[in-house]
Each structure stands twice: as structure tokens, then as C-alpha cells.
């Protein structure tokens, strides 16, 4: 069982969360009308073997989306931050 340190709630079981996939893909702006960025965002993944940044939704907890650093080979878990903070970092 994976366990994540939710920034709001503390260490919680995987069963309180839903998986949201790769957190490195960047959603195009709503006004983006070009095909490629949307195709890329919706369908293509790096699918790395090793460190992976990924979204989890603390749906049976504080309802916050978080970004988890997790290794897809060892399942070792690194930092867990609120998605809204991670996205801000991405932008800056």
C-alpha cells in the first residue's frame, strides 16, 4: 500500500486517493486552438522507468489534488505538494 504525506492531512493510505496520471504534462491554454499541443497533452506520455511526478486526488480526504514524486521501479515516495503550488512553480 502506498502512503502519501498529504500537505493538508498528513500521512494517509493510498486508498484515500485517486490517481490522476503524469503531472509533467502541461494543459494548453483554453484558447489554444492548435491540434498538436492538445494531442500531446491528452495522449502522449513519457511513462518513465524511475522517478515520476504524478497527480493524486485526496478524494476521500481534503479533496486537494497533490503532486507526488514517486519512483515507478521502487515505489519510493519523495515530496508531496499541493498541485496548485506545484503548478505555480511550473509557471515561474
Amino acid at each position: 500500500m502506498l502512503r502519501f504525506k498529504c500537505p493538508v492531512c498528513g500521512l494517509r493510505d493510498e486508498t484515500e486517493f485517486d490517481y490522476g496520471g503524469d503531472a509533467t504534462v502541461v494543459r494548453p491554454a483554453t484558447a489554444e486552438t492548435a491540434f498538436e499541443p492538445w494531442y500531446d497533452y491528452v495522449f502522449l506520455r513519457d511513462n518513465p522507468r524511475g522517478p515520476h511526478r504524478e497527480f493524486w486526488h485526496h478524494s476521500r480526504g481534503c479533496r486537494q489534488w497533490v503532486v507526488v514524486e514517486r519512483d515507478t521501479l521502487s515505489h519510493d515516495i519523495g515530496d508531496v505538494v499541493l498541485a496548485r503550488d506545484a503548478v505555480k512553480e511550473n509557471r515561474s
Binding site: 502506498l2 485517486d18 490517481y19 496520471g21 503524469d22 511513462n47 522507468r49 515520476h52 504524478e54 514517486r70 515507478t72 521501479l73 521502487s74 515505489h75
Partner: peptide
């Protein structure tokens, strides 16, 4: 599925 990316 367990539901998350993994190679383990």
C-alpha cells in the same frame, strides 16, 4: 489494476 504507473 492497482491504478498507478509502475514497472515493479
Amino acid at each position: 489494476l492497482d491504478g498507478y504507473n509502475t514497472y515493479a
